[in-house]
Design a protein around this nucleic acid. Sequence first.
DNA 1: TACTTAATGAAAATGTTTTTCAATAACGAA
DNA 2: TTCGTTATTGAAAAACATTTTCATTAAGTA
Lengths: 139, 139
Amino acid sequence: MSAENWLEQLHDNGYRVTGARRAVVDTMYGLTRALTPTEVHETARKKYRALGLVTVYRTLEKLEELRLIQRVHQPMGCQAFIPAGIGHQHLLLCKNCGEVVFFEGDDLDALTTAIAKKTGYKIEEHWLQLFGLCANCRE
Amino acid sequence: MSAENWLEQLHDNGYRVTGARRAVVDTMYGLTRALTPTEVHETARKKYRALGLVTVYRTLEKLEELRLIQRVHQPMGCQAFIPAGIGHQHLLLCKNCGEVVFFEGDDLDALTTAIAKKTGYKIEEHWLQLFGLCANCRE
DNA sequence: TACTTAATGAAAATGTTTTTCAATAACGAA
DNA sequence: TTCGTTATTGAAAAACATTTTCATTAAGTA
Ligand SMILES: [Mn+2]
Ligand SMILES: [Mn+2]
Ligand SMILES: [Zn+2]
Ligand SMILES: [Zn+2]
C-alpha cells in the first residue's frame, strides 16, 4: 500500500490521475492525524500551487467513496479526514495532539444482543471511539 | 422533570425566562428524535411566531451548556440535538425514523485496559453509539 | 499526434453559524 | 405596582463552509 497505489485505485475506477489529485493523495496518505478540507488544501498547495479548494473537496469525496479515507467525528467538529482503517476497526484519538490510532478486537455482541432484546431494535451497526492522551502527550 | 423545570434551571443560572426561550424549551423537552436548529426553529415558531433563528442557536447553546440537551452525531450530519441522557449513557438510533433511545450498562473496561496497554494511551472517554431499526420500522 | 471528455480553478450561489446593534422586555429593587 | 438596569431579542450583515456553474485545460486513449 502506498500513495501510488491510491492513485492506481483512482485510475482503475475510471478517474484520471492529475497533478491536483497527486497533491491531495500525497497529503492524505499515511496521515496519523485528521485534517479538514482547508488544512488539506493548505498542505497540498505546497506541492501543487494552483490547487483549488474545490478540487480538494472533490478529491476527498472520491477517496472517501473508494474507502481510502474516512471522516473523523470529534467533539470539536466532524469535517476532518484520515486514511481509512481496513475492515471493521475503531478509533482512539489523542485529545492533545490529535494523533489517531486504529484498534480492533472489541466484542460488543453480548451488549448489542442485550440492548436489542430490551429495546426491540434490530441493531445493525455501531460506532465506538476512544479518547485519551497518547504516550507523548501524557507528560 | 418537566419543561417548566428546564426553565427554572435557566432562571437559576441567571438566565431570563422569555417567550422565545419557552418556545424552544417546549420544543426540545421530551423529544425522542433529534432536531437541527432549523427544525427547532420551524417547530418552535408555531408557538412563538416572532422567534428568530438566531435565538434558537443561542438558546440551544445554553441548554447544551446546562447539559439539558446534547448534540447527536450521525452519518448524515452532526448538528441535531435531543434531550440529554442522565449520567453516563449511550445512544441507539433508528436509521429509518430517527428515534433515539438511551441505554447504559456497557462495560468497556476490559477493552479500554487492553487498548491502553497496547497503545500506551491513557484512555479518558469513549463514544459508543448503536444504529438499527426500531420495532416499528423493522417491517 | 489528435480527439474526446473528465477535471480544473474562478466565481457565483447556497447554506449555516456568528456578530453587530438598536429596540425591547424580564425581573429585582424600591 | 412601578421603575431602572441590563439581558435578550430579531433583523441585517458578516463570516464561514460547501456546492454549483462554466469556460478552459489537460489526461488518457486511439
Ligand atoms: Mn466494533
Ligand atoms: Mn460507556
Ligand atoms: Zn498526543
Ligand atoms: Zn424507527
